[in-house]
């Protein structure tokens, strides 16, 4: 049983190490996590919900597309975006929804009225504007920030919004890679230790009269069959032992 446990630990340890190594290399998460929202009715602005910009990683790249129109992207503090939106008809990107093949951005529509031209407002801490397609990189910072994608605040907002979060540090690693590798290493070392540090077999002593060697059926090792009463009287402990 001792050896079985040891071998199981060795096998499990090797498995853990291999699995951890695979998760840290071949099965490592992609360097970015990307998702797209295709909105049928975006309203006059598309706004991220609190926490969406900081979903993972140190920075996010937002891209908005509105064919044939000027596209504006801006990031501002949540309270200021709410002041800017007021009762505007807009879409709020609420987070990621997993599909069988990846992720999409989930969104909800908030009915309302027109907003104002976002290019005139000075609430934006970072902004980008371009014809047809605009891109904005936002490095994570403390606080509650939202991104707004719009055209002129009156015409429909970009119907396609893509967010791509860069993953570094813990977010770039598979959550199970390190634990598996660590646990695997521990199990492997423990198993090897059990195998190597087991009590060594005693050196064979010369057989006395009446003693004979016979194969141990169960273990396949040699046992000493004690039959000589003299040896027993002499305190010999030549009892069978399994190595």
């Amino acid at each position: 049983m001792h050896r079985v446990i040891a071998w199981l630990l060795v096998l499990a340890g090797l498995g853990g190490l291999v699995a951890g190594a695979l998760l840290a290399t071949v099965l490592r998460p992609p360097p970015t996590l990307a998702a797209v929202a295709d909105l049928g009715d975006p309203g006059v602005a598309v706004v991220s919900a609190p926490g969406v910009l900081e979903l993972t990683g140190p920075r996010v790249r937002v891209t908005a597309v509105a064919d044939g129109r000027d596209v504006f992207l801006g990031v501002a503090r949540e309270s200021e975006v709410r002041e800017w939106l007021q009762d505007a008809h807009h879409s709020e990107v609420t987070g990621l929804t997993e599909t069988g093949t990846g992720h999409v951005l989930g969104a909800r529509t908030v009915p309302g009225r027109e907003a104002a031209d976002p290019r005139l407002a000075d609430i934006w801490i970072a902004q980008s504007a371009a014809a047809g397609r605009a891109t904005l990189d936002w490095p994570r910072r403390p606080g509650r920030y939202l991104v707004v994608a719009a055209t002129d605040g009156v015409a429909p907002a970009p119907a396609t919004v893509r967010m791509e979060w860069a993953r570094t540090g813990a977010a770039a690693e598979h959550a199970a890679a390190r634990p598996l590798a660590t646990a695997g290493s521990a199990a492997l070392l423990l198993g090897l230790a059990l195998l190597l540090l087991r009590r060594p077999a005693r050196p064979h002593r010369p057989l006395r009269a009446g003693q004979r060697r016979r194969p141990a059926v169960a273990s396949g090792r040699t046992v000493i069959d004690v039959r000589d009463p003299a040896a027993r009287r002499a305190g010999s402990t030549a009892r069978g032992h399994r190595s």
Binding site: G51, T94, L96, P142
Partner: peptide, 8 residues
């Protein structure tokens, strides 16, 4: 797991 937005 799919990350979930957590507002700061």
């Amino acid at each position: 797991p799919t990350p979930v937005p957590q507002a700061q």
